[in-house]
Every structure is written in structure tokens, then in C-alpha cells.
Nucleic acid binder design. Sequence first.
DNA 1: GCAATCCTGTAACAAATATTACAGAAGCGC
DNA 2: GCGCTTCTGTAATATTTGTTACAGGATTGC
Lengths: 289, 289
Amino acid sequence: MERPLLEDIRDRLEEFTATEKRAAHALMANYPMQGLGTVAQFAEAAGVSAPTILRFVARLGFPGFAEFQKKLRGELESQLNSPLARSDRLPAEPGGDPLVSQLLENVEETFAHLPKGELTALTKLLADERKTLHLIGGRFTDGLARYMAAHLRIVRANVNHVAGQQGNWLDQLIGIGPKDVIVVFDIRRYQTELVHFAEAAARQGATVALITDSWMSPVGRIASFVLPARVAVPSPWDSSLALMAIAEVLIAGVTRENQETAQERMRELEALRNEIDPSTEGRGSRPDI
Amino acid sequence: MERPLLEDIRDRLEEFTATEKRAAHALMANYPMQGLGTVAQFAEAAGVSAPTILRFVARLGFPGFAEFQKKLRGELESQLNSPLARSDRLPAEPGGDPLVSQLLENVEETFAHLPKGELTALTKLLADERKTLHLIGGRFTDGLARYMAAHLRIVRANVNHVAGQQGNWLDQLIGIGPKDVIVVFDIRRYQTELVHFAEAAARQGATVALITDSWMSPVGRIASFVLPARVAVPSPWDSSLALMAIAEVLIAGVTRENQETAQERMRELEALRNEIDPSTEGRGSRPDI
DNA sequence: GCAATCCTGTAACAAATATTACAGAAGCGC
DNA sequence: GCGCTTCTGTAATATTTGTTACAGGATTGC
């Protein structure tokens, strides 16, 4: 991240003219709000003329007042979106809804108790491009497997989402062996088909990783990695939110492990996309894929 | 001290017109920064015209945009000058993984800003069994649509997940009309196909509900319900966790609204299951389906 | 079905703001 | 002390922004 403008101004104070110093002091005294009004307001607060403010801003390296304000806004937005700032703005109870509170607590508790070594080891395994990944979920968790596969196949090769009719899953066991990794999402009610699939894959030498609830899917018996999540909420349903959070952390971890390959693949995808639809070029700063 | 404008807006949401609601959502999603730019910028973010923003501001009780901005500036200055905010300006080490912290913040922030009335109204609409629900997502959010559909079709009839090749989506527009509700999951990069599908459905009289990110999918222009979620995390990816949390709250809400019908359907499903596989009977205390 | 009312966007206009040109003052070097 | 350079504010201009008028579409009530 770029250093805050405030630090830059403080370091360069001695190179300013007398009136530029007054502008700098006025800004520092009420940072960043003083710079977010008009040139005239800033000038009045500093006791100088409007063109002097513009010269000050130009000396800081901005082509115009608008760019200067853009920088201040960016800093302010980052600050406002930090955790501490947010707690000051609203009551501590997010919405006061017990369901929402429990959802948050589930995610929080899940990561508080998740073995870091297990998470790190699984991340590295999933980042290993010599392996082929197969992601599979049950009736309610297939969306998570699908979500994770959609992301991983962008940052690495050989990612397969085991989809379609459950009766056809066994077809996809053909050729599975020690170079394969099976990632299973399975929460109550555990699905017998998932257990069978995972057991068969393990017999053929594949590594099995399980993302499940606290009561442990039967797949846990043969899995090399088990990541349990809190799913209980005041509702007739179990919540998959914490499993989703685990999936996102794994996705981010694999992307970080394979940073160069990931960026290469994203560029290729972007190039393909621009061939198909050039109007989407240059939309955002993060990987627009 | 005067109550924050944010709370005032949230409480008065139901008295706003459709476009004023969009202005309110846009402001709430990026409060207060969204209101500190120009009328044109605010209008673009909300997907409405500049005069609509001025009408919105007038309805809030401000004689002009300048007074509205003055109010926002005052709140922001108070916040920046509070001890908590000042301590945030110092370097701080977040406890634990910054990614996990941000995931939690996103969910927390999403529900802190989510309008309760909007959420309640959408829950009731989704619970209305005279309606047919169609859930649709993009490349990364299809899993969420799938997840929500898998739950809803257990507690009510007439739930359709719009799946398959995007080229075939238009087929599913046949027969869609005022009795249909389209639930769209769309985050950056917004998919043109989703926009087209939603626009076509709206033209045919369907109600459109959008679950999106803070920057508002273009679907927001024609949606009757908009639920924005925080998606930014310290990763090359956007996070869908907060959208997932919204989906879970809606699922729980619809289940609560249709409690008797839901229990009836769950019993029927359990009976069907026991005909096929009696060994699973009586496994758990919650609806085992 | 029609009239009245409300909502909304477009276009035009008024007002505000950012920027530039220019001239006077101040400072510095010879 | 003078000439040159730099600094600075005023005024003018260009540009941007806020606001209003108006017209078309949607909604509602009779």
C-alpha cells in the first residue's frame, strides 16, 4: 500500500514556501476533511489564496485538485472500512438478529478451533499442480464444491467438479489414484453416496480431505485432512456459512501459494475475454475475471 | 446529539419510492462517502437520475444537496475525532488472520446496513406460495442460487433453479409473468446474461430481487428488492460469504413463515426416504431430510 | 376506460468551482 | 542599488455542478 499523504507532507515540510507551509499545517490540523471541501474553503482556512492551494497540491505531485481529493477519499474509505471504525458507528449487536449473531459466532468459533497446521498443509496440497483436484458435495453442499472449483480452476490446472447424477459418480472414479486429491463437503444428513465415493477413491490411493460439521461425517474415518465447522443455528436448518468461509480461505491460500501461475492464468483468461468482448477491458483494479 | 442520518434513513425506507430506495441503498452501502461526492456520482452509483437524488435528499428534510453534505461531513468529522477512530490511525495488528477478520467484518457490516424492512418484505414474498420462485446466479454465484433453491424447495412448492448453459436461460423465460419472482445473485464482474435475463423477466411482469455487492449490479436498476453485501477481502478474490449469509437468513425466514407447510413437507419427504432406505430413520433431532 | 396524480428522466439554465493569465511584491545575487 | 527570479493574490475564463422546468409514463381512484 502507498504511504499516507499525511506522512509525506510531514516529511517534506521544509521544502515548502511560507504559504505552502500554511496550507500544509491547515491540512494536517484537520486531516483529511480540510482537503475534501472546495479550494476556496481550504484557502480560507489556511489564510492563503486559491491558486496557492493549487500550487501546493501540484508540489505534492497531483496534476489537479480533483486528483488530490481522490487520494484523500481513498485513504478515508480504507480507514472507514477498517474494523475499529465500524464498531464506533453502530450498536455492537449486528442487527440484533439471533440468527445473524449465531452465523457470525459459527464462523468465528470455526476458525478459533480450526487446526492451523491442518489448514496450511491442505492449502499447500491443493496448490500442488502435480495433483488433480476433485471437489464433491452433497445435496446442500454441492454449491460449495462448485463455488470452490470455479475459483481454483482459474488459478491452477487440473481441477474437476464431480457433478451430475449421483448414480454416475462411480464413472468418475476410473483412473483415480495417488496423484488425485478428493475434497468432500459433507454435513448432516450425511449422504451414503459421498461416503462410498470417498472410500473407493481412498482405496485407489487418492488423498481425501473433508470439510464437515462438528459431528463429523463418516468420511472422516478415511480422510487425511478434516476441517470441522460450526453449523448449528436457531433455525430448523444447519448453516453452511462456516464451510463457505473455510472454502474462501483455502481459495485465497492456494491463490497466494501459486501467485505467479495464478497471475499468468488470469492474464490469459483476461486476454481470452477481451477477444470475445473487448468492451469489458479495464473495468476494475482487482483481477476482473 | 442528533441521531445519525443512517439510522433515520433505515427507519424510513418504507416510505420511499422505488428510485428513492435505490438512492438510499447506494448511500447506505458506502456511508457516508457516497454522499460526499457529486450529485452525478451518487446518481450513477444508485442507477437513478440526478434530480431523483435531489428529491431523495429533499425528502430527508434537506433544502439542498449542500446541506445534506454538511450533515454527512459533520458526522464524519465527529467520528474521525473520536478516540476510537484516532487509535485506528495508528498501526494495529489484527488478532489472527486478516482474511478471516475481514470475512467476519463483511458479514457483520452487511447486516448492520441491511434494511430490516426490505429483508422482511422479501422473506414474506418468497414465502408466498402463490408465487413461483426462480433463483439464478452467475459463474461464481450459481452455487448460492443452487444452495438456496435446494433448501427452499423442501419447505415450499414451485421453486426453480435456473441452471444449465447460459444460452438456454431464455428458454426458461417462457410463461414467466406477474406470479413469478426472480432472485438474482450477481457480483463483480457482472454478467450481461444475468442482466438480460432479469430485464426480460421484469418486462414480463415478474418481480426481481437482487443480492449483490456494494457497487450494485446493473440488475439493481430494475429490481424491486436489493440486498447489498460486502465482498472486499485482502485477496485477489471477492468474497461471497456475506451473500451466503443473506441467503441463509432468507431460507430461515421463509421456513419460519411457512412453518406448518414446511413441517408437512418434511414429514412427507422423510416418509419417501424411509420407503427407499429405512436404515436412516431417526438419525437426528432437527429436520432430517 | 378515463382523468387526475405521482414518479421519473432529459434538457436547459443558473450557480459554483477549478484553473489560468497577469501584475505587483518580495527576495536574492552581483 | 539594480536586475532577475520567485512568490503571491486578483481577476477573468473555462469547466463543472446543482437545480428547475417540462414532458412522458405509470399508477390509482372513480
